[in-house]
C-alpha cells in the first residue's frame, strides 16, 4: 500500500469512526445529523478512492485534457465511481435537508432536541397509561 492509499483509507476509517461515535454518544438531533453527514463524507471518499488508479488522468474526454474518446482505456481513472459519488452527494443533501426539517418539527413539538424516547421496547408504556 503506498502513501496515498494510506491517506485515503485512513481518512475514510477516521471519518466513519468519528461519525459512528457521534451517533452513539450524542442525543442531540442536530449533532446526530452532523455525525451522519460525516459518515456520508467518509463513504463518498471511499467511493472515489475505489475508482482511483495511480498515475492516470481525469476521465474527461476531449477539451483541454486532450484525451481521445477512442483510446481512453488504460489512460484514465474509473469514471463510474465519480458518477456514483455525484449521485450520492445529491441524495445525501436531500436526506440531510429532510432530517433537519424533521429536527425543526421535533423541536417545535417537544421543545427539545434530545432524543429521549428512542430506546427499544417498554419505555413509552408509561406515556400510554398517562
Amino acid at each position: 500500500m503506498n502513501g496515498l492509499a494510506l491517506v485515503f483509507y485512513g481518512g475514510i476509517l477516521l471519518l466513519i469512526a468519528v461519525g459512528i461515535w457521534g451517533i452513539l454518544s450524542r442525543r442531540n438531533l442536530i449533532k446526530v445529523i452532523m455525525a451522519i453527514t460525516i459518515i456520508a463524507t467518509g463513504v463518498n471518499l471511499l467511493l472515489v478512492s475505489v475508482g482511483y488508479i495511480s498515475g492516470r488522468a481525469a476521465p474527461i474526454v476531449g477539451g483541454d485534457t486532450g484525451i481521445d474518446a477512442s483510446s481512453t482505456t488504460g489512460s484514465v481513472v474509473d469514471p463510474i465511481p465519480q458518477a456514483l459519488v455525484l449521485t450520492a452527494i445529491v441524495i445525501g443533501l436531500a436526506t440531510t435537508a429532510l432530517a433537519l426539517v424533521a429536527a425543526v418539527g421535533y423541536y417545535r413539538k417537544t421543545g427539545s432536541l434530545e432524543l429521549k424516547s428512542w430506546s427499544y421496547g417498554l419505555t413509552n408504556e408509561k406515556e400510554v397509561k398517562k
Binding site: 438531533l29 446526530v32 445529523i33 451522519i36 436526506t95 429532510l98 432530517a99 424533521a102 429536527a103 418539527g105 421535533y106 417545535r108 413539538k109 417537544t110 432524543l115 424516547s117 428512542w118
Partner: peptide, 11 residues
Amino acid sequence: LNWKGAAGYAV
C-alpha cells in the same frame, strides 16, 4: 405533524 416518529426514522 408526528415529528417524533419521523425524526427518528429520518436519522
